[in-house]
Amino acid sequence: MMRIDKIEEGVVLDHIAAGKAIDIYQSLNLGELGCTVAIITNARSSQMGKKDIIKIEAHRDLDLKALGYLDPGITVNIVQKSKIVDKKNLELPDRITDIIKCKNPRCITSTESNLVNEFVLTDRENGIYRCLYCEAKAER
């Protein structure tokens, strides 16, 4: 079995759906953090069968709202001195800003470049977000 070292300080994103770690990495712009980031894909999981994990060293300031939208099943482990000191369970945020773009070509955001895309959670049960402006459903 492949062994990945523990991190001393930072964040471990656990229980990412298998194959989705790269999407999370890109959506959160983790490549721009300038710190060490390890992506583990298809790790064995008793709960999920297979899962992905992201380890981010020496950085704890993540956009949890964005992460909650991308995958509310992710567990965020805060690591200090090589120990997990806090676990954060995510939930779908009520509103997300500047994470996804509205795909409706008739939406005002398609022509007004100074507008920030905002989506509002309209159906928590089914995880449906709609554009604040045109109410088009967000496409995941």
Binding site: E112, E135, A136
Partner: peptide, 27 residues
């Protein structure tokens, strides 16, 4: 009135007077 959907919502964020939507696209 504006052909783009949601234009009045965007407009209202830039003024302090009441905005009435007289039609925003097919919305």
């Amino acid at each position: 009135r504006h052909p783009k959907e949601g234009a009045p919502v965007a407009a209202a964020r830039k003024t302090i007077i009441p905005i009435i939507n007289g039609g925003d696209g097919g919305h």
